[in-house]
Structures are given as structure tokens and as C-alpha cells.
Write a protein that binds this DNA or RNA. Structure first.
Length: 253
DNA sequence: AAGGAACTCAACCGCCCCAGG
DNA sequence: TCCTGGGGCGGTTGAGTTCCT
């Protein structure tokens, strides 16, 4: 969307780190007035920054809902998967990883995962090349191993006919929800008790999630690491977005 | 304890796309 | 149709921090 009038381009814009005061001004302004033309934001908010700088600061740091913590194993796996599928499409990755900005993902990739991935590739290429010495088309073995190693997680991203996990952090609803589109897994949320119960399979196994343990990444990690559900398969699960929740709880007209 | 290397992360830069005039 | 400006994105930089010797 384009702004209706241009602004004075001769204004000297401040650069560098943002002060807490600037953060407060920007946050207050956007929370009060909403997102509009970024060029007007610094003017109206009383900031000596340019619009781009404000946008960046908002999307990467001030925007509500950002996790801003260490990447979990599951998130790292997801980044690896998405990078395998999408390449350096950081913004697309961030759209599929709620709570993480494209900048955060990009930084994490360059600082850590790139090396980790290269190392993984190295060992895989070595082992597959020795295994497939007598096989044809060994030239694309690294590509194959790459796609196969990423395949399981890639499935997770796809939206298909999968059972659903209802992620309590994204819920602000008072009522208890049950989304048992599958017999295998359903998640119940009751904000009144500030606890989330997860039942698995026949419902024999239950786990209590404390209120501070409800972020998506921790939730996934707990399932993986503590082996809560023996038959739990991440490939059969997809996360629900707020839109999903809305459409699920709103009768179609 | 010191200093250099490696790492992290916030922010800037420059390019591209698109819509409005 | 062309020009202009805003928004979005990926690449890069550099200051600050942590680690290692």
C-alpha cells in the first residue's frame, strides 16, 4: 500500500541501536494506532528514525508473540527441513514458525545450523558413497540423502488430513476445546485451570503441562524427549494457527 | 589475567516488486 | 507507459559477548 503524500526526505535519521525510550515510543504508537504507512510512523511517534528502521525493529523485536529464546531441537530440525525445501527464503520460514522472525532464523542459520548441516552432509555423503559404490547414479546421492533425511520433517509442514494439536499458547478462549479429528491424538485446553491435558491413543497416558511450559517448541520437545506418547508420530501432526482455531470454532455460513 | 578467536545478534544496505499518480 | 515511493526481502556488517589458549 502506498502512502498518499511524500515526506520530507531531508530529515536526518538516527542509526544504530534502539534505546528503551525509542522502543517504548514505537510500541506505544503501533499498539494505539495500528500498522499503517511506515513512513509516517516515526514522524507521528516522535522518532528520528526512518520508516524502514521502525518496521524492522517492530517485526524483529517489538512485535507481540515473539519467543525470543534459544532455538529448541525441534525448531532447529524444522529450520533444516524448511531450508532444504525453500532455500534461503527466511521470511517464508518465519511464516511457518510462529514466534520466530526471519532475521532470527537467518542469524541462527548462519551462526550455527549451516555448520551443523554441512557436518551432517559430510558424514552422510561419506557413508552413502561407500554404500552405493556399486550402484548407479551416485552423483545425486548427496541430494537424495539430503531429501530423505529431511523428508520426515517436511511432511510436518504440509497441510493434510492429519490429526491436530491444539496449542494452548495460541488460545485465549475460555471454553474447553476438543479437536479429536483423529482417534490417535487430541489436546484439551482449559484456560480456567491454567493447565493443558494431553491424551494419547486410548487415553491411558496423560501429562500435565504447567502454564510456563506451553510454548510450541517446549511442547514438542517434551513430547519427543520424554517419550510421552510411544506411538506419537510427528508426521501425523500439524499445528493449528489462530485462523484454524477461528474457523474451527466458527460455524460456516 | 590477558588477549585473540569465534560466535551472536541487532541493524543497515541495496535490490526488487508493486501500486498509484 | 513511465516514474516514484513504500514495503519486503536476503545479504552483510559490526559491536558486544563468550570461549579458548
Amino acid at each position: 500500500m502506498q502512502c498518499k503524500s511524500s515526506l520530507n526526505q531531508n530529515v536526518k535519521h538516527k542509526k544504530g541501536l534502539w534505546s528503551p525510550d525509542e522502543d517504548k515510543k514505537l510500541k506505544d504508537y503501533i499498539l494505539n494506532h495500528g500498522l499503517g504507512c511506515w513512513s509516517f510512523v516515526p514522524v507521528n511517534a516522535g522518532l528520528q528514525r526512518n520508516g524502514k528502521s521502525c518496521r524492522l525493529r517492530w517485526t524483529n523485536y517489538l512485535r507481540p508473540g515473539l519467543k525470543r529464546g534459544k532455538f529448541t531441537k525441534h525448531e532447529e530440525q524444522k529450520i533444516l527441513t524448511l531450508h532444504g525445501k525453500l532455500g534461503n527464503k527466511w521470511s517464508e520460514m518465519s511464516r511457518q514458525m510462529p514466534g520466530r522472525s526471519d532475521n532470527e532464523i537467518k542469524n541462527h542459520w548462519h551462526s550455527y545450523l549451516k555448520k551443523k548441516y554441512a557436518k551432517l552432509e559430510n558424514t552422510k555423503t561419506k557413508s552413502t558413497s561407500s554404500d552405493t559404490l556399486n550402484e548407479q547414479s551416485s552423483s545425486d546421492s548427496s541430494l537424495k540423502s539430503r531429501s530423505s533425511s529431511l523428508e520426515s520433517y517436511s511432511k510436518e509442514v504440509d497441510i493434510g488430513i492429519r490429526p491436530k494439536i491444539l496449542f494452548s499458547e495460541w488460545l485465549s478462549l475460555d471454553q474447553c476445546h476438543t479437536l479429536d479429528t483423529s482417534d490417535e491424538l487430541s489436546i484439551y485446553h482449559a484456560s480456567s485451570s491454567q493447565q493443558t491435558n494431553m491424551s494419547c491413543g486410548s487415553g491411558e497416558k496423560h501429562v500435565q503441562l504447567s502454564p510456563e511450559l506451553v510454548s510450541e517448541n517446549e511442547f514438542y520437545d517434551m513430547i519427543f524427549e520424554e517419550n510421552v506418547c510411544p506411538d506419537f508420530n510427528i508426521n501425523d501432526v500439524r499445528m493449528l494457527t489462530c485462523d484454524d482455531l477461528y474457523s474451527a470454532s466458527t460455524p460456516s455460513i
